[in-house]
């Protein structure tokens, strides 16, 4: 697999898996209005995934976007681990998404300058969507953090639990470095300080404290995952796997 293909799949996979998680909220939101908002986020993410998979399929030359989404196994998915975490309660979801949205916003802003024109165009379209997601999750984080005596410790716990999945976002491996020197990839490490600013500023408004950096999970980009991903894929891929010759 070419480095560019793998790089594209990483982005597509993170969008798809997070979209899948968000779509699980459908008919379960805390208000009907928020149910609609969560579906909108999911639809944006599926749209992004679709765009990046189409490009990946073009690079691959044989598989279609749907083949890539529905016929690869756990170890062949390259998403960040943070996006595969289960939804938990609404606060868990907001924290997970907020941390990832902040990264995604900065990541796409950089990727829009990529020398790879397709990646740059897909990123430019995604920025607008992710900017809104970040706004939405930031506002909710502030409401929940600076809400009631019940809600504040609840989301503080979410934050403490999910924090260990943020380290991976800023890692650079050989694929990142190779494509960075070609002017294609984003220097993930370089967006960390801006991410810190976004996170610190919002946590302060939310009256939440930033967890200490301790053990940081890693490996998603290389196909190492939490146990959650297998169940997610089993459900998502069921029809394609059960009816290998069918067209849908």
């Amino acid at each position: 697999m070419s480095s560019l293909l793998q790089y594209t799949l990483r982005i597509a996979d993170s969008s798809l898996i997070l979209g899948q998680r968000m779509s699980e909220w459908c008919a379960k939101g805390p208000t009907l209005e928020e149910d609609i908002a969560l579906s909108n986020i999911a639809l944006d993410l599926f749209g992004q995934a679709n765009g990046f998979y189409e490009y990946a399929a073009e690079l691959d030359g044989e598989k279609s976007a749907d083949d890539l989404a529905f016929l690869r196994n756990e170890r062949e998915f390259f998403n960040h681990q943070i996006v595969e975490l289960e939804n938990g309660h609404f606060g868990d979801t907001i924290v997970r998404n907020f941390l990832h949205d902040g990264f995604n916003f900065l990541f796409y802003t950089e990727l829009a300058k990529s020398k790879d024109e397709t990646l740059a165009a897909l990123a430019a379209k995604s920025i607008k969507e992710v900017k809104y997601h970040l706004r939405h999750t930031s506002n909710w984080l502030i409401r929940l953090g600076d809400g009631t005596e019940e809600s504040n410790p609840k989301v503080q716990t979410s934050l403490n639990n999910i924090w260990q999945f943020t380290g991976e976002l800023f890692e650079m491996d050989e694929i990142d470095n190779e494509l960075l020197s070609a002017g294609i990839a984003v220097d993930n490490a370089s967006i960390k300080s801006e991410w810190d600013n976004i996170v610190n500023k919002t946590l302060k408004k939310a009256k939440l404290s930033r967890p200490e950096d301790g053990y940081m999970a890693t490996g998603g980009k290389k196909g190492m995952h939490t146990e959650h991903l297998g169940f997610l894929l089993a459900e998502m891929q069921f029809l394609q796997r059960a009816h290998p010759n069918a067209k849908w």
Partner: peptide, 21 residues
Amino acid sequence: ISRAPTLRAKMILLAKVQDEA
């Protein structure tokens, strides 16, 4: 929604259920 067989089908179904909300 979580078991829709293609990306297209998934987006359509989610948008439809969202319309119902």
